[in-house]
Amino acid sequence: MKIKLFYFARLKETLNYSTEDLALPDEPITILKLKALLAKRGDTWGQMLMGKLKVRAAINHELVADNATIHDGDEVAFFPPVTGG
């Protein structure tokens, strides 16, 4: 399956990625498993996605928990806790 990924704020800046298209095996995957998969790309990825930093996730523009399941065609985003207003 194919998904679209977005990164924001500190994650975008540190990973040097704002968006990417990702091809994954054709089976359901949770946010947590996706984070673990991306963390294997290197130390910076591991620290950003599986380290001490709080990371929130959204699927198709809805905030979700780590056990939410990602489906083919979904838009997934990772970002730090929000600080607007």
């Binding site: 924001f8 704020a9 500190r10 970002f79 929000v82 600080t83 607007g84 207003g85």
Partner: peptide, 25 residues
């Protein structure tokens, strides 16, 4: 306003004389 502060996806980055920094929630 309280919900916007904790739910709406906005992120602030400050520039100070010491350099740039992302705000913590």
């Amino acid at each position: 306003m309280d919900y916007l502060k904790t739910e709406a996806p906005f992120w602030k980055k400050e520039v100070t004389p010491q350099g740039e920094r992302w705000l913590e929630a």
